[in-house]
Amino acid sequence: MTEDPTAAAGEQGSQWYDTEAGPLVRPYAMTGGRTKPGPTGVRFDLIALVTLDPGAPGSPAADGTGLGPEHRTLVDLCHAETQSVAELAAGSDLPVGVVRVLLGDLLELGRVRVSRPVPPAQLPDERILREVIAGLRAL
């Protein structure tokens, strides 16, 4: 008895399709095969805050055209309020690596602004803060 080749192919392909979730789209398909955000090598920390810059003059994507659906999802999530990279990944249901690459695109287009967290080395020393508190209490 010979085996039907289309049935075997359907069984092999079934691992890439979930009837409840729909077809699986690989992350590299969303980023064009890129794994790093932009040519500048910008690194987005999970707690970096992303703010939409709607008035970016001269931006080729100021009206949203030319953006992929994933880019538009991130822009829509930023419309309401400033979001961290982690919040954007959760809200868009995309892997953090994909979100970082897409944010790099939006940053290059001038659609978003990113404020990076302050490095711990630049934060004031706890001893100094305690002395300030003690000084304020003494007043």
Rank of each mutant, 00 (worst) to 15 (best):
P39S: 09
E131Q: 14
V75D: 00
G110W: 07
G64R: 01
R137A: 12
V132M: 09
R34N: 14
L74S: 02
A134D: 15
A121K: 07
G38R: 07
A80Y: 06
E70A: 15
D105G: 10
R130W: 13
L107D: 14
T51S: 15
T51H: 11
S59T: 06
S84T: 15
L77D: 01
L74W: 01
L94C: 01
C78Q: 01
A56E: 04
I128V: 14
R43M: 06
L52D: 07
L106M: 13
E108D: 15
V96K: 07
F44L: 13
A80G: 10
V99D: 06
D105N: 12
I133E: 15
P119R: 15
V96Q: 08
G32M: 06
R127F: 09
H71K: 00
P39W: 06
L88Y: 07
G55L: 10
L103S: 09
R116L: 13
D45V: 02
E108Y: 11
G97W: 04
T65M: 08
I47V: 14
G32Q: 08
V50Q: 07
A121C: 03
L74V: 01
L46Y: 04
V42M: 07
P124K: 01
K36I: 04
S92I: 02
E108P: 04
A62C: 00
G64A: 03
R111G: 02
E87A: 13
P39T: 10
E108I: 11
P57C: 05
L109T: 10
G104C: 10
H79G: 05
D105S: 12
V114K: 01
G68L: 09
S59R: 10
R100N: 11
D76V: 08
D76H: 10
S84K: 07
E131K: 13
P120C: 03
L129T: 06
G38H: 02
P39I: 02
E70W: 06
Q122P: 00
P120V: 09
G58N: 13
P60N: 03
L67I: 13
D53F: 05
Q83I: 00
V112S: 07
L67N: 05
L88T: 06
E81V: 07
P124T: 02
D125W: 05
V42Q: 14
G38I: 05
V98C: 03
L109I: 08
T73E: 15
V101C: 11
D93E: 14
P60A: 13
P69C: 05
G64L: 03
D125E: 11
R34H: 13
R100T: 03
S115K: 09
R130M: 07
L109S: 06
H79T: 11
G104F: 10
G104D: 12
G97C: 10
V101E: 15
L74F: 01
E126C: 01
C78A: 15
R34M: 12
V112R: 02
A62I: 04
G41K: 02
G135V: 03
P95Y: 01
R116M: 12
S92P: 05
T82V: 15
V96P: 00
P117R: 09
A56W: 04
K36N: 07
D105Y: 12
P57G: 10
E70T: 08
L77E: 05
D63S: 12
K36Y: 07
L107T: 11
L88E: 13
V112H: 03
G91S: 03
S92C: 08
D53P: 00
T40E: 15
L46T: 08
A62G: 04
L94W: 03
A61D: 09
V50A: 01
G68E: 09
F44A: 09
G38V: 10
